[in-house]
Design a protein around this nucleic acid. Structure first.
Lengths: 153, 153
DNA sequence: ACTTAACTGTTCAACTGTTTAATCATTAAC
DNA sequence: GTTAATGATTAAACAGTTGAACAGTTAAGT
């Protein structure tokens, strides 16, 4: 592969990455509706899948400071979507769990997102989309590894 | 493809999309440094590539209201990165162009991002990455089409 | 046991980015 | 020549973020 080809490939990837991310985010926002912001939905999803978690964990996953998590959790707590429970053994830790309302709101939005993504995916061959996701997964691993390597420095 | 397989594929894509986007954004932020935010860098890039553009165009590309663009341009104008020039024929239109400082700052960050992406891409077979980008491009087209279809409704 | 250090989470001030609605200046349409 | 429409801005309000300071709790060292 020539230098020029590599540069073009990289340019194209940077361009596509920006464009796809923007448009996907925009479509997802429409599925979520006005009850939740994107970040709030992502937060609901993480807590839903983890069943229970704490601020530090969320801060690491979302790659923001803990104070940012406190702020977002506060807003969702005020809306009655999230509960806080202190650990009895280590009273520093605050467990975050979804309320019934939070659960319901998450599932409603997630179903719509699921339908959206399914309709997008259905426009590809099965082999093409499988190959794509496989590479995407590999990229994800490489990105995780890149972050870890930076931590060591 | 069974129902179950589709659901798993969709779940995986949603999961990966979130994870990859977060991590890539985080790595890119590190390349940009503290002189610029991500959005400011994206703005510089768009104006750099377009050579000249106006607020409405940016608002459409970034999928935000024009007032949001005004705000971001104001901050970058205060930093001396962007110039505003009124069109002589239609004095409503304000052309946005990069100052030398803006140009320089953009290129410095973009070079680092380029190196980052190149080092990521180099960890794949050429055929794999070509196939990936091809599918990514197709996905981008589909997303653009999805937006257009919504506009018609 | 007491002191110190480390950890979990919060508060506060300052900032970026966003939307909504109102406004200004300019151009287009009739 | 008055009325639309257009391009851009302003102001208020809010979500999200950081950085620094802090409170409460637990762990470690001695």
């Amino acid at each position: 592969m020539t230098e020029k080809n590599i540069k073009e490939l990289v340019d194209k990837y940077i361009q596509l990455s920006f464009s796809v991310t923007k448009k996907a985010e925009s479509l997802i926002k429409e599925q979520i509706g006005s009850d939740l912001t994107s970040d709030q939905h992502y937060t609901l999803r993480y807590i839903y899948q983890a069943e229970s978690c704490n601020s530090s964990e969320l801060a690491e996953v979302f790659d923001v400071k803990k104070s940012a998590i406190t702020a977002i959790i506060n807003r969702m707590w005020e809306k009655g979507l999230i509960q806080r429970t202190r650990d009895e053994d280590d009273r520093r830790i605050v467990y975050l769990t979804l309320t019934d309302k939070g659960n319901e709101l998450y599932l409603k939005a997630e179903q719509r997102i699921h339908k959206l993504v399914e309709s997008l995916i259905s426009q590809f061959d099965q082999s093409e989309i499988s190959q794509f996701i496989e590479t995407y997964e590999k990229l994800n691993d490489i990105l995780i590894h890149s972050k870890d390597k930076q931590m060591e420095e």
